[in-house]
Amino acid sequence: MKIDLNGITKIYKSENMQTTAVADVNLSMAEGDKIIIIGESGAGKSTLLNIIGCIERDYEGKYCLDGTEVRTLKRKKKAQIMNEVFGFVFQEYALVEDDTVYENVKIPLLYGEVRKSDYRARVKEVLEKVQLEQYIDKKVSEMSGGQRQRVAIARALVNRPSIILADEPTGALDKKTAEEVMDILYEYADEKRILAIVTHDLQRVKREGAKVIKMEHGKIQG
């Protein structure tokens, strides 16, 4: 899997003003790459991550995923890529509070090729990786912040994606839990997958071999 961003610009328009979130970004990532994007709030880190994850639409420039320009993809194909290629981790966990761990983790499976009868086994397997297998039927509203983030990671990994996009994955966690969460992500990413992390806190997420990119006013510095 290869990511190529060429001249990517994203401008948010409102009635009275325009805000350039990402300005002329060029970036390439290949299998095994671990990239940490840092920068101040409003630097465009999350927007860039969302463009990579096909969440953000209406940008300028050329974004190719494995040689195919994402903009040309049909809605159905794009949804399939979001389901199979990407695993998303968000700062505020983004879990369905009313549901159990199982219900939350299986969301990506609902739209993929995995058979319904295999859902539980797949969820169990990934929960073992994040050491939450005993909580499979517990409501996420009854879990701690660290446990919730691990549920979110399990959801990101359940479809065995080749690209992990994590937006402030340790933002709401204490130091020890943050390290555990990062260990899980790095262990999964190994040498075959791409890991892109947006963070304020470089110290907590940095590991050996990870490349750091600094963004300022929507641009990549240096």
């Binding site: 969440i55 809605r75 949804a79 979001m82 998303f88 969301i107 609902l110 739209y111």
Partner: peptide
């Protein structure tokens, strides 16, 4: 809407 967004990010179509 939050839950729907979550599903859309994880591969759901608007049809779903």
């Amino acid at each position: 809407i939050r839950e729907f967004s979550l599903h859309l990010i994880h591969g759901a179509l608007l049809t779903d």
